[in-house]
Write a protein that binds this DNA or RNA. Sequence first.
DNA 1: ATCTGATGCGACGAATCGTTGCATTAAGGG
DNA 2: CCCTTAATGCAACGATTCGTCGCATCAGAT
Lengths: 196, 196
Amino acid sequence: MTQTRPGGRTARTRAAVLTATVDELIETGYAGLSMESVAHRAGVHKATVYRRWGTLEGLLVDALTFFADQSVPTPDTGDIDGDLRELARSALAVLADRTGQALVRAMVSAGHHSQVAQVIRAFWADHTTMVAEIVARAVRRGELPPDTRPADVSRAIGAPLYMRLLVTAEPLDSAAADQAAAAVAAAARAGVFASS
Amino acid sequence: MTQTRPGGRTARTRAAVLTATVDELIETGYAGLSMESVAHRAGVHKATVYRRWGTLEGLLVDALTFFADQSVPTPDTGDIDGDLRELARSALAVLADRTGQALVRAMVSAGHHSQVAQVIRAFWADHTTMVAEIVARAVRRGELPPDTRPADVSRAIGAPLYMRLLVTAEPLDSAAADQAAAAVAAAARAGVFASS
DNA sequence: ATCTGATGCGACGAATCGTTGCATTAAGGG
DNA sequence: CCCTTAATGCAACGATTCGTCGCATCAGAT
């Protein structure tokens, strides 16, 4: 029976290596990431990193699961505009943070790898579930068309913010988040995200 | 006096190398791009590539200017909805094409390099100028609020499409483009992109 | 036809990569 | 407390890649 040892040194090593991974991502990006530099920054021998994670992709996937554990509660402000604004500001909190930026950029750079793609799909599936709840309440209140697609709303909230981070390199401030929320609200009310 | 020779072999070499660059980007992405593989695919010695372009960044910048020369005429369909739909479909044409995808992904991966960032800024400045013309006409027709910000409209059109390409890996079809255009139209009409 | 910029060619030192065998450390059970 | 054995440290390695160099050759341009 092969025993595994989750506690003590193993956990310390994992935390050190994954923290070092993010710090390296912040400084050099995924393109400049190397197993050896991560190991050195973590104060760990490179053979350890190779044995535990194997590849850069494995390192990134573990880092993503390690740092993305904190789940945000579903907003419920009483109207769709407030809920969408809360969602946009949650997204902003991640995308304006150095760690969040580094991880998102790395996800994009490594998005073609199957395991990374799986993490991305899982994230957006969760996000869509959250949005579905908000949309359902808005429909009940008569604020939105009954056949409004949660997935479309989910993507539309984040799109302007990801655009700023990844493409145009424009500032990520609360004004941007609020504008994103307002744009989605207007479009959703107009039935742009309705299936019929 | 140092002479430069733009014609004949020089131009052929440039075309071969830049085409090879894009083909490599399509196959391996910017992360997997190397001067040597580009040279080999172009049927050119690697020293030539190093001498002419120096770095991967230089190669990418030249490839971007080489393939992004075709300018699109400003749409003028008679109403803002039609114009925005045309704009979105033009963006779709680029983002749905293998070459366009490869170049956009590379731009994102190398966006931190100053010259690449400069190309990106120039592109969006041009795009904003085009949108400004469309918005001005729409304002004259009374379709949009007078203080609608062209830059915001410009980004909002592309955002859902870039989101699909870079983040969620969802299909880039005409339905996506039309939805993006409709969402922007609704938001713009509601005054979300107005400065006041 | 001549001049000269551009390219081809091969080789090089340097750096990086991923692996391997063995010694050492420390977690976890008795 | 001791023992077993994961987990890690360590050093070295062959392989590969990287960027540069000197020199020979090719082909525009005049």
